[in-house]
């Protein structure tokens, strides 16, 4: 059997098993998601107040509202949280039990990520629906299915990008004793540069060139912009190109670092 097909089947099975296992904690997931939408709503209210009292923002109320309502879903859909766990497994030598299985190590990570996202979405989507309904009068809803399709593709690419960055950081545990500070640093940097805290469109003029082209924009902000903003056709294409490019580049680097790490790991026999 083709290795890829086999690995995909493994992913499917493991995802299903993970979902079954995790659904025991569905109450906890709901509370978690409730916490997740607090921040976007607080930001939304603040920026709407600023607009209402005459602040001259480069974007309008519809953009701000759509942006923050969708922010929660996109942040969650593209998130990855395994760096800490994976780094711990590497450090404690637990990787060995995974390495002897006839499926790619990646399969397990992907399955875990997919299953948790599935359950989180289940809890999150109704909440976003309610918020959407409350602000329905000032939401930007793109006409036609084209933009939505691009939105979905962009989320998928964003998720892959975050996932590879996550593994890249975790694989540094092959050489470093403690990557938790690094993990924390990534979370903090990403929250600003991905547009989770403030829409990148509100960043000052002097930072534009950097902000618009750095990789973190393509993890959260860009997918949201597809629906919320007025990206022109060429801007859209260029953006997707950048996103794809970053995924390929990071995947290549991660692969390189990971296999070097595995070699070092096997050599030591930890």
């Amino acid at each position: 059997m083709n290795a890829l097909v086999r690995n995909l089947r493994v992913v499917r099975r493991m995802t299903a098993a993970d979902i079954a296992q995790q659904s025991v904690y569905r109450g906890a997931w709901i509370i978690f998601m409730l916490a997740n939408i607090c921040m976007p709503i607080i930001s939304l209210l603040i920026w709407r107040t600023a607009l209402a009292s005459g602040a001259q923002l480069p974007v309008d109320e519809r953009y701000i509202t759509t942006y923050f309502v969708l922010l929660g879903v996109v942040t969650m859909a593209t998130s990855s949280w395994m760096a800490g766990f994976l780094a711990q497994d590497i450090r404690l030598g637990k990787l060995s039990s995974w390495m002897i299985r006839p499926a790619s190590l990646l399969a397990g990570f992907v399955a875990n990520n997919l299953s948790e996202k599935f359950l989180k979405l289940f809890a999150l989507v109704p909440m976003i629906g309610i918020v959407w309904w409350i602000f329905r009068d000032s939401m930007n809803i793109p006409a036609g299915p084209g933009r939505w399709a691009l939105f979905a593709i962009s989320i998928l690419l964003g998720a892959m990008l975050v996932f590879t960055i996550d593994i890249l950081i975790a694989s540094l545990a092959f050489w470093m004793d403690d990557v938790s500070a690094l993990v924390q640093a990534r979370v903090i940097i990403a929250s600003v540069l991905s547009g989770s805290v403030v829409p990148l469109a509100l960043m000052p003029e002097w930072s534009r060139g950097f902000v618009d082209h750095q990789p973190f924009r393509y993890t959260v902000s860009f997918p949201v912009e597809i629906v919320a903003g007025q990206l022109t056709g060429p801007e859209l294409l260029a953006g997707l190109g950048f996103q794809l490019g970053y995924v390929v580049v990071f995947a290549a680097i991660t692969r390189l670092v990971w296999s070097a790490g595995i070699r070092a790991y096997s050599a030591v026999g930890a």
Binding site: V192, V197, P204
Partner: peptide, 26 residues
């Protein structure tokens, strides 16, 4: 200590940006 300082700086970012667009709010 370090995480606290970074988070403090980060917490001020939205405020600084906000007041880049207006001198006074409510």
């Amino acid at each position: 200590l370090l995480v606290g300082l970074v988070q403090l700086g980060l917490g001020i970012v939205p405020t600084l940006l906000l007041f880049g667009f207006t001198a006074e709010l409510h």
